[in-house]
């Protein structure tokens, strides 16, 4: 499923809304999450899951293929953890 498939599914539920507006709504949902992550805020969508950003320290690492030493700068990485209800849904409970 892609974003446009998702938009089509939502359009079926809201036939009186234009596709363009459905697209805007879906984009607001996604962008709200992205903006919060950028601000290092946690996002909690009960039942679905939560998103947050972890900070990885700078470290001396090795390129696993060449064995070459590389210095990796500190960076921030987005994470997601599925909520209890969503875990149950995908496990068919």
């Amino acid at each position: 499923m892609t974003k446009s498939d998702l938009i089509m599914k939502i359009s079926e539920i809201y036939p009186y809304m234009s596709i363009r507006n459905v697209d805007r709504v879906v984009s607001i949902v996604i962008n709200s999450i992205v903006d919060a992550l950028r601000e290092d805020r946690r996002i909690e969508l009960r039942g679905f899951g939560s998103f947050w950003v972890k900070t990885r320290e700078a470290a001396q690492r090795r390129n696993p293929r060449t064995g070459e030493k590389v210095f990796v700068k500190a960076r921030r990485v987005p994470f997601f953890k599925a909520g209890k209800q969503l875990k149950e849904v995908i496990n068919g409970k």
């Binding site: 998702l6 996604i30 969503l86 849904v89």
Partner: peptide
């Protein structure tokens, strides 16, 4: 309600074992 519908449609696709790819955001 529409936020709920968005989340439910994503969950429904995942339930079918489908991946959900939102460009510029990520893939479930």
């Amino acid at each position: 309600e529409i936020i709920e519908d968005v989340l439910e449609e994503i969950a429904a696709a995942l339930k079918e074992g489908e991946s959900v790819k939102i460009s510029g955001f990520g893939t479930f």
